[in-house]
Design a protein around this nucleic acid. Structure first.
Length: 523
DNA sequence: GCGATCAGTT
DNA sequence: CACAACTGATCGC
């Protein structure tokens, strides 16, 4: 649970993921993702009032987060004050103090965080240096090195401070099986059950939170069965998710919820109330996604664990493991690090003790901070390793292996796609929010400028923006998926003949699928 | 009636 | 099994 209070030392006039107390005075707000514990105060009367009299205050987030947030009527009042920023597009934002008229500019870049749909990290660049707020993240080893915009030329950016998701920053969480390994385990468990008959169904016992969507889409893709959920209107503009979900209860894969779901399940009833199909009782198993971890020297073991007659736990994590955190931070190698979370059973001091050695402040030959302008210019071509060694003597970032991995756009697209938000009608921007592309002298990367200077009612115009469809890595075939990663974690589930088959012999030999898009072969 | 907070549950 | 959110009790406006 995040204990970040909303403000960063370098840029105290902006607030991120907290909207109460001191944050009520912020010049701009940022939301990293749409989870309730990062939205404290976001719909409180105090902030609502502030918004009414401070017309230059906006909330910045990713297009997907904006879509998810505005689906809830409780947050509709934000509609005209949210500005979505495309992923990986440096964007300049004015920070205006409405009382004094004092103005400061900051450039923000959204980087995919792999935590839930729309989740991002914020990279801020301004007068007080470059800082990175990670929000909540799950990034595999090496993924920071593949992020183009964390780099300046071929080098990693000179980052003053990182505000870090330390949820699993404890050596006991040393390793967590990868997304692909967990997914593969769940796919095989589900396959082993639902292929027995159309009356064999699985219930995915998920918490009420965004973040399971890639599980649903992969299951649906694999078996040609949409996943039953309670609500799907939040995904109405995200076809890649929407098409894999249904509110029709006649499917073999359920992720519906009910306050008494566990109780229901004991009586062979799904949370949506279904107990049978064609008057034939269903055979149900529950699969509860939950985090599993292994210490540095613990033998790797199963990603699926049987917890009862018809219950399983399946490995699933929203957050990076200890070793993934170490990889991430040691690559960035900032001057300072601030934990956003104190994991239960540990202390701030212990977390700092773990993270400090990965920062420049404790290891640098030359610990003094140098502003960006004084850094040696990055070379255009990579050096060979020998030259590299020599170079370290006057390099203010004396950590090797911190060069960009050329292969970008590979943030596990096969299991964690960044959804595209598309609108049928052209998007209407009612603010005079002019975004235009210029060449940024410093980074040579495209920068958007958001100018809120004239956002008063008289200059309001309706800008017609063509329906946007952000760059998509493209569909990944099953073939590619299979080749992408061979799980090194053993997938465990009971032998097929161990799975109870009671009642199966009485089933009709019909393969009628009850409206399902695909009917599984019937044994 | 609404919201904030806390304890308990999953 | 450690996330994140719901539920219900309590208090205050």
């Amino acid at each position: 649970m995040s204990s970040f209070q909303g403000q960063m030392a370098e840029y105290p006039t902006i607030s991120i993921d907290r909207f109460d107390r001191e944050n009520l005075r912020a010049r701009a707000y940022f939301l990293s993702h749409c989870h309730k514990d990062h939205m404290k105060g976001l719909r409180a009367p105090a902030l609502k009032r502030r918004l009414e009299c401070s017309l230059k205050v906006h909330l910045y987030c990713s297009p997907v987060t904006k879509e998810l947030l505005l689906t809830s009527p409780k947050y509709r009042f934000w509609e005209k004050r949210i500005i979505s920023i495309e992923i990986e597009t440096p964007t300049q934002i004015p920070l205006v103090d409405e009382a004094s008229g004092e103005k400061e500019e900051i450039v923000v870049t959204l980087l995919p965080a792999g935590h839930c749909p729309g989740s991002v990290m914020f990279l801020f660049q301004g007068n007080n240096g470059t800082v990175l707020y990670t929000g909540d993240f799950r990034l595999a080893k090496g993924e920071a090195a593949r992020m183009e915009l964390l780099h300046y030329g071929d080098r990693v950016q000179d980052i003053q401070s990182v505000y870090l998701d330390t949820t699993f920053c404890d050596p006991k969480f040393y390793q967590i099986p990868s997304r692909a390994e967990c997914l593969s385990g769940i796919l095989e468990l589900v396959r082993g059950w639902i292929s027995r008959s159309p009356y064999h169904v699985v219930w995915l016992n998920c918490k009420a939170a965004y973040g399971y969507e890639y599980l649903f889409t992969n299951l649906s893709e694999e078996f040609g069965l949409q996943v039953h959920v309670d609500k799907l209107d939040m995904f109405r503009n995200m076809p890649d998710i929407l098409h894999h979900l249904t509110t029709d209860r006649a499917t073999q894969i359920h992720a519906c919820r009910h306050p008494k779901a566990e109780e229901y399940f004991q009586w062979n009833r799904l949370p949506c109330g279904v107990t049978s199909k064609n008057r034939i009782p269903l055979h149900t198993i529950s699969i509860k996604p939950s985090t599993m971890w292994f210490g540095e020297r613990t033998r790797k073991t199963n990603v699926i664990v049987r917890t009862g007659e018809s219950s399983y736990r399946a490995c699933f994590s929203f957050h990076s493991s200890y070793s993934e955190i170490q990889d991430f931070l040691s690559y960035i190698c900032p001057v300072n690090v601030y934990p956003n979370v104190i994991p239960i059973g540990t202390t701030m001091d212990k977390v700092i003790e773990i993270l400090k050695p990965l920062c420049r402040s404790s290891q640098s030959i030359e610990p003094k901070y140098k502003p960006l302008g004084k850094l040696k210019r990055a070379r255009t071509a990579p050096l060979d390793s020998e030259e590299e060694e020599d170079d370290l003597f006057d390099d203010p970032l004396p950590v090797p292996l911190r060069h960009k991995v050329p292969n970008q756009q590979t943030l596990h697209p096969e299991v964690f796609p960044v959804p595209a938000v598309s609108q049928n009608q052209p998007q209407k921007l009612t603010q005079s929010t002019e975004c235009f592309k210029v060449e940024n002298m410093q980074t040579s990367l495209r920068t958007n400028f958001i100018d809120c200077e004239e956002s008063n009612s008289e200059s309001e115009e309706e800008l017609q923006v063509p329906a946007s469809s952000p760059a998509d890595p493209g569909p990944v075939t099953h073939q590619q998926k299979a080749e992408a990663e061979v799980p090194q974690w053993e997938v465990f589930f009971k032998r097929k003949d161990d799975i109870t088959d009671e009642g199966l012999e009485n089933l009709p030999s019909s393969t009628e699928g009850g409206g399902l898009s695909v009917t599984k072969a019937f044994k």
